[in-house]
Design a protein around this nucleic acid. Structure first.
Lengths: 196, 196
DNA sequence: GCTGGATCTTGACTTTAGTCATTAAATGCA
DNA sequence: TGCATTTAATGACTAAAGTCAAGATCCAGC
């Protein structure tokens, strides 16, 4: 059965502000492949090259590293209508420093770098979307960097509560803690204090 | 006297991998204006819209915020052959959350967003450069985020020593500390320990 | 429903980094 | 050169976050 490309088309059109022709949609359908991941399965393992970029139709994932002490640090939490990949590895075809793992059962539409370059990038709406994404990502990264440098754990948590309240429902607390750069115990205590 | 555009042309050609024609160079010369800043002068103040993006021909600057306690946090240190701006404010024409201040006497080539869109973006080498920059910046932001989340102050300092050794010569230690998200005292002690 | 693993909470303690105050050194510049 | 300002170092203390260990709770799958 064919996957549902509607979310992807909507996403590209919305971000780019351009409309996709029927022909262009066919190019997407021809080159993106449906991929399913069960909870806990890996989309990418540290040391491997990130061959695919995937559009998340359903489910969620975390991008994380493991340090020398064996502690995991979550760099990114990804949900529906986001792209799943390690930019650096995907664009430069270098081994990745990250692991990407499904936190829920996932459905992706994925494609290789080579096919993107050959068939997808020439589609103006896609190229425009890509620039917008890079721009947005850069801005978001700058904001997050600012909070990492200048705010306490408690302030970073409050910001997350305000900006991504649904994350709190959707992800276990230890994942949120790791995303914020805190130990699970510390986040537990922060929440306890915040309730007063 | 006309400013020296050579560094800018070299930079655009190097990043884009394309050559600029004489006509295209004239477009640059026509629309970029030379701007000088003395040490400590502001290129941008919090609350203002970042009207210009500037290519740094000479000198250096810091991008920083001031928190409620009056503490400054440096988000970015910029030197020759980098662009100086607040992405978010410049692209979206929203008031900036950042201050940008010269750390040394500076010479910039600057231009407004509107003029970039009208005259400069149509130059293929420039558009290509911009995408590469966004890509590189995204990758760099991810790396820096990773160290902020998963490394101690000492490890972050060691990384800076390895990656940007010239920063240590060029910028006072309290600026470096702020860039690393540390108090000046803490960085002083880290350095003392590291010398053993 | 029962069970085992995962998640969360809490307490006691340690480590890391920040704060405040003081002194020393370096630097700018008149 | 000499003085004022900035920058850096250090000590004593405080605050924030991490660590380790134990127990409680939740939940998926049989």
């Amino acid at each position: 059965m064919m996957s549902d490309f509607t979310p992807l088309f909507d996403y590209v059109e919305r971000l780019s502000g351009k409309v996709l022709s029927a022909d262009e949609k066919q190019v997407f359908i021809r080159h993106f492949k449906s991929k399913k991941l069960k909870k806990r399965q890996y989309f990418l393992q540290e040391g491997d090259v990130c061959k695919y970029t995937g559009f998340i139709v359903k489910g969620s994932a975390r991008t994380f590293t493991v340090d020398e002490k064996g502690h995991e640090h979550i760099l990114k939490l990804s949900v529906e209508n986001w792209w799943l990949n390690d930019f650096e590895s995907f664009y430069q075809l270098t081994p990745s420093r990250f692991n990407i793992q499904a936190l829920e059962d996932m459905e992706l539409l994925q494609i290789t770098n080579a096919l993107v370059d050959e068939f997808i990038k020439p589609i103006p709406a896609f190229a425009a979307m890509q620039n917008i994404i890079n721009q947005n990502y850069t801005i978001a990264a700058q904001k997050r960097m600012q909070s990492a440098i200048s705010q306490s754990g408690e302030e970073r948590f409050q910001e997350l509560v305000n900006e991504y309240p649904h994350f709190l429902q959707r992800f276990p607390q230890n994942m949120i803690a790791s995303y914020l750069g805190l130990s699970p115990e510390t986040l537990s205590r922060i929440r306890k204090n915040a309730l007063k």
